[in-house]
Write a protein that binds this DNA or RNA. Structure first.
Length: 320
DNA sequence: AAACGCGCCAACCGCTTGTTT
DNA sequence: AAAACAAGCGGTTGGCGCGTT
């Protein structure tokens, strides 16, 4: 049989103490001393549970309680003791006469903890914060990072368009009719008709036919998107890096008709194997006009309306 | 003047530990 | 030895006051 709750009595008052309650409690303890807290409320004429009375007395009414602001010495002592004892507030309180564990705990949580954090000290370990140096280094790279975000966003846009094209041009199976429907065209039944879709936008058509001499998004340094902690796959073969990779009749993998299970993308982070990478998140000096963006920018894909397409493709993109 | 956000702190809650029966 | 009880402890919450918008 478990222990019954301390304050399970019905009608027991909770919340802030009234002055007359404080008076009753103080008078009773001054007269009879501390003792059986469970019986005290009844004897003192209080409609409170014993636990509540004890807390009120020890944290507020006790005559030896020292109220007011913590001094610098107390502050230093608390930090010092906390570094040794941790959150042992009652033990810490025994070293600060007149201060209650509750008061020290509150002071720590509201003031000291923040103070330490601001001065670069971890309030748990009392050691210099390691994440702060990381933050500092990130700040120093803010300028280039902002530019990288632009580069990365651009790259993702291009990559999505690239995969959209590939989906529509897979040769190993019937074209993805659903996607084609999404493009708002009449349902094509062969590759010739699929090509007609691209005729809707000369720019995309050019992209597919490689007639602009566009930089391939797949060549040297291509990586496979990985979900295992960002590990990169080995660069793909030289065949894959051919400009033909953007052409029709390319093998799209075994999952034609659905989004390829293994989505290829240009590497975003340089690696020893990816010497030719033009985009690196670490100290990149790329600008929006640097390769591979120049030629792609010429497409003016913003006007293509790809965003709407990608929105509608989201069920495929999110499919397992 | 009202609304809102935020910090402070008293009090509560649930759990653990120690003591008594 | 086990159950019941009391006290203590630390985390969390809720209300209040104050400053800002």
């Amino acid at each position: 049989m478990g222990r019954p709750p301390c304050c399970d009595e019905h009608g027991v008052k909770k919340g802030s103490w009234m002055p007359d309650e404080d008076k009753k409690l103080t008078e009773y303890i001054e007269k009879h001393g501390q003792g059986n807290w469970r019986r005290l409320p009844k004897l003192a004429g209080l409609n409170r549970c014993g636990k509540s009375c004890r807390l009120r007395w020890t944290n507020y009414l006790r005559p030896d309680i020292r109220r007011g602001k913590f001094t610098d010495e107390e502050e230093k002592l608390i930090i010092q003791l906390h570094s040794v004892l941790g959150n042992k507030w009652s033990t810490i309180a025994t070293r600060l006469p007149g201060r209650t564990d509750n008061e020290i705990k509150n002071f720590w949580n509201t003031t000291l903890r923040k103070k330490l954090l601001q001065t670069g000290i971890d309030p748990v370990t009392h050691q210099p914060r390691t994440d702060l140096s990381l933050l500092s280094s990130l700040t120093s790279r803010l300028d280039s990072s902002l530019q990288l975000q632009v580069d990365a966003a651009r790259l993702i846009e291009l990559h999505l368009v690239q995969n959209l094209v590939r989906l529509l041009t897979c040769s190993s199976a019937a074209p993805n009719l659903d996607l084609i429907r999404l493009l708002g065209s009449a349902v094509p039944t062969n590759h010739h008709q699929v090509n007609d879709i691209f005729a809707l936008t000369p720019q995309l058509s050019s992209l597919v036919n490689g007639s602009l001499g566009l930089p391939s998004l797949e060549p040297v340094g291509q990586q496979t998107l990985s979900v295992n902690g960002g590990q990169t796959a080995a660069p793909s073969s030289a065949d894959d890096s051919s400009s033909e990779s953007m052409m029709m009749n390319r093998d799209c993998g075994t999952n034609s008709g659905t989004f390829p299970a293994s989505v290829t993308t240009p590497s975003l982070v340089s690696s020893p194997e990816n010497k030719n990478e033009t985009i690196s998140l670490e100290g990149s000096t790329n600008t929006p006009t640097s390769p591979p963006f120049e030629a792609w920018d010429a497409l003016n894909l913003d006007d293509f309306g790809w965003k709407e397409i990608i929105d509608q493709m989201s069920p495929w993109l999110n499919a397992p």
